[in-house]
Structures are given as structure tokens and as C-alpha cells.
């Protein structure tokens, strides 16, 4: 099977769905690039080249460059979705939600409920997240917990190229608004990705490995780190389950609890800032619903409560690492077994 990058996987998903369904359109700033400029058409193909080539195949009518106007085009995507298109809008960096969030959380997310179930809003917002690019505080955040908080939105966070293609096709075919998070440091990751179209259902966690000692739940890029940590820990005879929820809304809490009941130990790894992030949410649900099964305190591995810094020395310290995950797992293994009440 051919190996493809995360970038190619998303591109292929968009292309195949645009071929399959004429109501699918893509829009965003520099989604083709060079609009109105004297140089090449499709000059950028998206800020990091993810949508390259779509213009040539589908034309300006379905590949829509926009002015730098996030409120206008994210709102337009919502309005288009409510009236019959399936738009995929590129909100370049999720940090830019600050200038258009109303159109997402007050409009698109709530149409269906406010209108008594008579509307559907099948839109996808693609957006880049995450630290590691030396892009500093306004281009590096992991804001998926904010979107996960909003009823009416779905949130997908693929952890690999295979996951990205299947989740993107599902997102486009889904009748609800989906926020699709792409980690900017993962675009060149490669793995085997089928040429054919396929879907990965939302709300079904992926077990990357199953072990008896500790459950590690990780999100997005952190899945890769958690897997690496688990491989190292296996050599120390610590046998970990690594669970990727794939979507934080809906969240497959059932699989997480099932695993925690088996291992009795939980470590949650989340690149989002630590207050009210996915780690706190998942930990709270585990504590509430599987307290009796826990043999040790839950550990959360998240960055500190600070903005993402610029200097490489500081940013590297900010991002959860394989070492920090390993240390958290060792600490829950070392915790004295809780006595039954």
C-alpha cells in the first residue's frame, strides 16, 4: 500500500469527496493563492500546501479564495451549509477563532437546536493547531477544548495520515458542523493510506496497543508521543494501553472507562493548556464513573498554564514529551496500591 503524508491524506480526502459530491466546496485564505496577482494560479494551494491542485481540477467556482475576513467566510460557510452546500472552510490557524468565533458557536453550532431540528449544517472547518513551529503565542495553541465545550459542534483530531483521511471523509459526509484539527508539525508524517475512500466513524476510540498496567489516553500529536513512551515502558515491563479518542466530541468515554477498569491506572496526555482541557475532562469523568477501579491517582500530562513561548529553548520545555509521559506512567505504577474501603 502506498505511503502518504498527512498533507496528501487530507488533500486526497478533499479531492475524492469533491469528485463524489458536487455540493462540496472549499474556501479560505490562500486556499489556492495568488488570486488577482500577476504570478501563478494555485500559487500556495493552502497556507501549507494541503489544498494544492484542487483549483486545477475543480475550478474557481468550487475552490474559493477569500479576503482575510474570517468572520465573513466562516459565517458564509455556515450559511451555505444551512442552505444546501457542504463547505470545507480553512480557518488557517485555530488561534484566529478570536475574530470569527460568533459565526461558529452562536450560529453554525446552534442552528439545529434553535430551529427545532429543522436545520442541518454540514460544514467542516479545517484548522491548524499545536506548538513546535516556533510560531509563538498567537499561532501555536491547542484550542480544541473550547470547541468541545460547545453543544452542536463535533471535534475531530486525527493522530496520523490514515486517521486524517478517514476522519476527513467522515467529517465532510457528516450532517453536523465539524471542527477538524490538523497539527502543523504532522503534515510530513507518512504512513500507508489506502487509495480508496473510507470513513472512520466519530466517537469510536482507537486502541493502538493494549496492556494490563496503565491506560494512556492521548490526543492528536500526543498519540505518537504516547506510543513511543509505551514502547520504551514495555522494555521496563510496564505494559500500557494507548487510546486515541479520535474525536473529543463525541467522546468515546465508554472505551476509556472500560480500559481504566482493566488497568486501574490512567494517564491523560493533552497538548492543550491545563485548565479545563481534555485531560481534566477525561480525568473527571474517570474519577466520577470508575473511582472504584482506580489503583493510583490519575496523572495529567499537559503544558503549564502559560502562553506558547517563542524561543526554542522555552517552547521545547512547554510541549509534553515522551520523557514526561514516561515519568507520569512510572509515577502511577509506583503509587502505593489504594486499600479497598
Amino acid at each position: 500500500m502506498p505511503k502518504k503524508s498527512f498533507r496528501q491524506a487530507v488533500n486526497e480526502a478533499l479531492r475524492q469527496e469533491m469528485e463524489r459530491d458536487p455540493s462540496v466546496v472549499v474556501m479560505g485564505e490562500d486556499i489556492a493563492g495568488g488570486m488577482g496577482a500577476p504570478g501563478e494560479d494555485d500559487a500556495w494551494g493552502g497556507p501549507l500546501g494541503v489544498t494544492k491542485g484542487l483549483l486545477a481540477q475543480f475550478g474557481r467556482g468550487r475552490v474559493l479564495d477569500t479576503p482575510i475576513s474570517e468572520s465573513a467566510f466562516i459565517g458564509a460557510a455556515a450559511g451555505a451549509a444551512a442552505t444546501g452546500l457542504r463547505p470545507v472552510a480553512d480557518l488557517m490557524f485555530v488561534d484566529f477563532m478570536g475574530v470569527c468565533f460568533d459565526q461558529i458557536f452562536n450560529q453554525a453550532a446552534k442552528f439545529r437546536y434553535m430551529f427545532g431540528g429543522k436545520a442541518k449544517t454540514p460544514m467542516v472547518i479545517r484548522t491548524m493547531y499545536g506548538a513546535g513551529f516556533r510560531a509563538a503565542s498567537q499561532h501555536s495553541q491547542c484550542l480544541y477544548p473550547v470547541f468541545t465545550h460547545i453543544p452542536g459542534l463535533k471535534v475531530a483530531i486525527p493522530s496520523s495520515p490514515y486517521e486524517a483521511k478517514g476522519l476527513m471523509i467522515q467529517a465532510i459526509r457528516d450532517d453536523d458542523p465539524v471542527i477538524f484539527f490538523e497539527h502543523k508539525a504532522m503534515y510530513d508524517d507518512e504512513e500507508e493510506v489506502p487509495d480508496e475512500a473510507y470513513t472512520i466513524p466519530f466517537g469510536e476510540a482507537n486502541f493502538l496497543r493494549e496492556g494490563e498496567d496503565v491506560t494512556i489516553v492521548a490526543i492528536g500529536r500526543m498519540v505518537k508521543f504516547a506510543r513511543e513512551a509505551a514502547d520504551q515502558l514495555a522494555r521496563e515491563k510496564i505494559d500500557c494501553t494507548v487510546l486515541d479518542p479520535r474525536t473529543t466530541s463525541p467522546l468515546d468515554i465508554g472505551s476509556i472507562l472500560e480500559s481504566v477498569r482493566e488497568t486501574g491506572r490512567l494517564v491523560v496526555v493533552d497538548e492543550a493548556n491545563p485548565r479545563c482541557n481534555m485531560a481534566t475532562d477525561i480525568s473527571a469523568q474517570a474519577a466520577e464513573q470508575a473511582f472504584d477501579a482506580l489503583k493510583a491517582p490519575i496523572r495529567m500530562v499537559s503544558p503549564p498554564h502559560v502562553p506558547v513561548p517563542f524561543s526554542p529553548a522555552l517552547e521545547d520545555e512547554f510541549i509534553p514529551s515522551v520523557e514526561k509521559i514516561g515519568a507520569a506512567v512510572r509515577s502511577v505504577m509506583a503509587a502505593p496500591a489504594r486499600r479497598a474501603a
Binding site: A72, G75, A76, A80, N106, Q107
Partner: peptide
């Protein structure tokens, strides 16, 4: 497409509805 509790909510949405008509 709805009354709207957010002042200024409608213009972007209408761009989308107009886009649907155009596409």
C-alpha cells in the same frame, strides 16, 4: 434563516446562502 440574537449575525450567513444560490 432565522432571527438572530447576535447583532450583525446575518451578513456573513447571507453571503453563504447567496453562494449556495450561485454555485
Amino acid at each position: 434563516l432565522g432571527a438572530n440574537g447576535i447583532v450583525g449575525g446575518a451578513p456573513p450567513l447571507v453571503c453563504g446562502a447567496a453562494l449556495t444560490a450561485k454555485v
